[in-house]
């Protein structure tokens, strides 16, 4: 297997160049401790980007991830308020997230509704449900137990648990995508749905599985988010779904499906995470972040399109030798 494929290599080089540029003026930014902080801070984005990547691989899109995250985060906070022990809360948010993902997946699979319509709808429904549950009330730090808040920040082997969960997510996703039939099916369904049918892979069922995966990761991230920022309300992570899609697009996950790697999605998320963390350091107003990530998305799309341009049929003999 070719270790370095051009897309990922170029993105890695871009990240290194970005870090070098920042370090030239602010060497403190690349200190291991600060990089660990960036990784921790970017973990939610990484986890969601991994789930979104599975969905995009199957030619779908999940715009409901941020709403799913917010709903699960609120449920986690409410359960904590009711005295439920942390392991149970973790299990519950993952299951709830998966169930919300399954709703998306079933609507796509069983009713054949385009994923963008389904998740546009469930996005507002999921977020609205938080209001129905709480009447718009906030759950603040003092209403949460210390164990609940401390878990993501607990440092194990030099890194907070939050960062470890991000790393574990990366490893699990890499294993899933390259070493399990389901992972290969994600690629197959998006790459050539017609052929997938011929090989006995159900396109709809695979898409549904991707939504469940994305939902479960969103549920887990919901707890991490609420515990880390120690607050839960209706609008947490509003608009975050676009950052997630942006991370995937920058990471070279083809929106047309079928092509993309875990390394790409992770680096796409890290790229955005580094920019977000570097802006205050280099003294640029954080209000620049949105425009920068928008430009990064456009550059990434243009670059990916250029590198994937169909070379056309090769009929001439000498042309075949030349390529």
């Amino acid at each position: 297997m070719s270790l370095l494929k051009s897309r990922e290599t170029i993105l890695a080089l871009a990240i290194l160049a970005l870090l070098a540029a920042i370090a030239s003026r602010f060497p403190g930014f690349v200190a291991p401790r600060n990089l660990a902080r960036v990784l921790t801070d970017t973990s939610p984005l990484i986890l969601l980007a991994l789930g979104q990547m599975a969905v995009i691989l199957t030619k779908c899109i999940d715009l409901s991830v941020a709403a799913n995250l917010a709903l699960c985060g609120m449920v986690a906070a409410l359960m904590n308020g009711a005295g439920v022990p942390l392991p149970l809360i973790l299990l519950a948010v993952v299951l709830l997230g998966a169930a919300l993902g399954a709703v998306n997946g079933l609507l796509v699979w069983r009713l054949g509704i385009p994923s963008i319509v389904v998740t546009l709808g469930t996005m507002t429904i999921y977020r609205g449900s938080i209001f129905l549950m709480t009447g718009g009330a906030w759950i603040n730090a003092h209403q949460m137990s210390d164990a609940f808040k401390a878990f993501p920040r607990t440092v194990v082997l030099g890194l907070p648990v939050m960062a470890w969960i991000g790393l574990a997510g990366i490893a699990a996703m890499a294993l899933l995508l390259t070493r399990t039939p389901l992972g290969r099916a994600f690629h197959a369904v998006g790459g050539n749905p017609h052929a997938a049918v011929y090989t006995g892979i159900s396109v709809g069922r695979t898409q549904c599985a991707a939504f469940v995966l994305s939902g479960a990761l969103a549920g887990l991230t919901g707890y991490l988010w609420v515990a880390r920022y120690a607050v839960a309300y209706v609008d947490i992570a509003a608009g975050f779904e676009l950052d997630v899609v942006a991370a995937c697009v920058i990471g070279g996950i083809a929106i047309a499906g079928g092509a993309g790697t875990v390394a790409g999605a992770v680096m796409g998320a890290l790229f955005l995470g580094i920019i977000k963390n570097a802006l205050p350091v280099v003294g640029i107003s954080p209000f620049w972040q949105m425009a920068i990530s928008g430009s990064a998305i456009l550059l990434a799309i243009a670059f990916n399109a250029a590198s994937r341009r169909d070379p056309g049929r090769i009929i001439l003999k000498q042309a075949e030798h030349r390529t």
């Binding site: 899109i61 928008g294 456009l298």
Partner: peptide, 10 residues
């Protein structure tokens, strides 16, 4: 879809 997600941020 991705172009306009990008320009939306931009």
């Amino acid at each position: 879809i991705v172009v306009t997600i990008g320009t939306m941020s931009l």
